[in-house]
Design a protein around this nucleic acid. Structure first.
Lengths: 219, 219, 219, 219
DNA sequence: AATGAATGAGGCTTCATTCAT
DNA sequence: GATGAATGAAGCCTCATTCAT
């Protein structure tokens, strides 16, 4: 009897990928709910509906799984932003659009939003991919005179720190509706955009992001 | 025979306070070293040089101790800033002076600095006392026309988030010397100070804070 | 109120020693019964009647406990042999007496006997203290012409290996009554004692050891 | 179309035997390296280069495989000794030749040597086939007056115990070059051979065994 | 107050074994 | 026959907490 070894291997790989995804998804939900430190392997496998030992067939430790999760999130978010990167060429406008879209995505998807906050500390708080996008955008903005000349590292600290803190405030519900609009405007001002234009850009970007709220679950 | 009950009581209270302080100090050192989640009660009592059971005579849980620690740190820092609050009246200058002094204090005192970073997440990332100081300063700045009118909550997100991220970058040693100078200047610009003046104020405040480096251990 | 701190400390130490002994005794019984590799910490604490965590207050691993057990056994046995060392001066007779007494002790005390066999492999199969006793005895025997000149290391391999194998055979009940008598005689012959005298010495030592069977539980 | 069913069956049996041998060989290497208790089925199949499930197509448990391994080793060794059994008729000389050859084989083949030591305890320490060979040899030696009359079981304890202990000492490298020569001589003396002849026989047997070192991998 | 031995819940990890493909 | 994903029992270890002294 002849056996189709390739088909069998493909089936196996498929099943493997499915189980792996089940675990990563489950971990995202559990960690968003309880926080990294309160999450045990037991919690994750229970949520995933697999046996305890199965976990170790895929990840040696919870932190390995977290890395996978982190990478997956960052890539998903970055991919979701591809359309606006293609469409918007003005750096301040692209920055504002990205931040507002990101915030909408985080609040639209409670799991992803909480997850991002709760991973504070256990994983890199700034993803390399986002840093690179920002660096390019900032450099281009300076080059064409839309941003003031300045230390890029300090600008990064400002942007990523402020955004994270705002995310926290928004998710905890302690903010007024225009909190994010104002924050993004402040960032643009810090980078050299005039107050009036900064507020204008931020407001428009916020409105457009809201329109997209239900179209793009990113994580 | 007559016994001085008050004196005895005072002695007792004194000893009690001493043991309590021993525990809080020990916790600060251990957590700064290993991080909150890796710190056990055993570690703390060993560092404090008291018996395990003694811990429970003072704190029902580790988190109670953490609250005490957090409060103590915030008050110490706030008290250390009293001189400049009395001395500097210009809001942008006071803000710059406070931020630079704070950063110097954190980096000068490795225990306090790491502690602040490592408690990220386990305790409130923003102390009420600091928020109140900022609110008053911001309001005064707006009143006298030094800061641009704007949403105070957004300004708070910006300031506290950016400062925390900068602290992280500085303590991890991934920054150039003028990173903090630039960051503080960016904050002032976001609040409406002109670029030239913002850089000037930040640079001067940084220089003065450096002069004080060895005079004010704050925690 | 005055507290007798010394008395309290003494009580504590006492309790500690008791619990430690409970664990070592329990381990001896369990290992004699099931063998080292089949013995879990759970088994030991159950046999000792203490909680699982208590084990770790005394020993970091089962092997640490085994070392303690091993040392204790060797010292007990060596001490039990003190009288005959003081009494018998002729090296062949002392060797025969020691071996027969040892064998009687091992078979009289099933726990100790099985324990010695089952620890084969997990711990040093030859205790340093016994090696030293044998070296001294062998050297003295050679010096006074009772043993033939020869390589001491080879003599040691012969003696310890043969005795261990004999112990195994005896404990498994696969031997005739004079098995040990013959074996000890063979050892003496290997060392240069004439066949007639060797059998004579071994027989007498066996008889005397039997007389002591119920007087000296050694472990 | 005609199919050669016999050939196909033969091929099947052949393949089966090959996989089985792969497993047994792999187990030998792994156990020699890590010891029986530290060896998992996973280790064995990884070393053998087959899938985990394949193991169970051949052996219900690891111990079944160990039995196979043990038997194979004993038969290989016994077969390797066939030439000298045919050639040497004098019992003391045959005994000495066998022991020296065995020791050379064990030390020449690190896998087999360590394996034999590491299986100490997990399997029978004396193989029936070796016992029978010794019994016959001893009986014949007594019959023709080369060995002294004596208890055969005690002689067996002496021989097998001493040899195993010597093997351990040699493999651990704690011996002088003539350790085994002396030990074999002591055994012959214990059996009634005169000291001079015993040493002579052992020395010659050792020299001849050394000559064969590279010709006969026994396991 | 201070002590530290004892506790046991809770988490981690390994690994023999099953079974669908 | 061979495969390897899935399983879950069984062990290990840590550590917050209790409590008698």
């Amino acid at each position: 009897m002849r056996v189709n070894l390739e088909a069998r291997a493909a089936t196996g790989e498929n099943r493997r990928a499915q189980t792996r995804a089940k675990l990563v998804d489950a971990a995202a939900r559990v960690i968003a709910d309880k926080g990294r430190e309160a999450t045990s392997i037991e919690d994750i496998v229970a949520e995933a509906g697999v046996a305890r030992g199965t976990f170790y067939n895929y990840f040696p430790t919870v932190d390995e799984l977290l890395d996978a999760l982190n990478t997956r999130m960052a890539q998903a978010v970055d991919a979701a932003m591809a359309p606006i990167r293609a469409e918007i060429t003005d750096p301040p406008s692209l920055l504002a659009a990205t931040l507002h879209r990101f915030m909408v995505a985080l609040t639209a998807d409670p799991v992803g939003g909480w997850l991002a906050l709760r991973m504070e500390g256990s994983v890199a708080p700034r993803q390399l991919i986002f840093e690179r996008r920002f660096d390019a955008l900032f450099q281009e903005g300076v080059r064409i005179g839309r941003f003031r000349q300045g230390n890029r590292d300090a600008a990064r600290s400002l942007l990523f720190g402020a955004f994270r803190m705002a995310q926290r405030d928004v998710m905890l519900g302690q903010t007024s509706p225009d909190h994010v609009v104002e924050l993004v405007a402040l960032l643009l001002m810090a980078f050299g955009v005039t107050p009036e234009e900064a507020r204008d850009i931020s407001r428009k970007a916020a409105a457009e992001a809201e329109d997209q709220r239900h179209y793009h679950p990113v994580m």
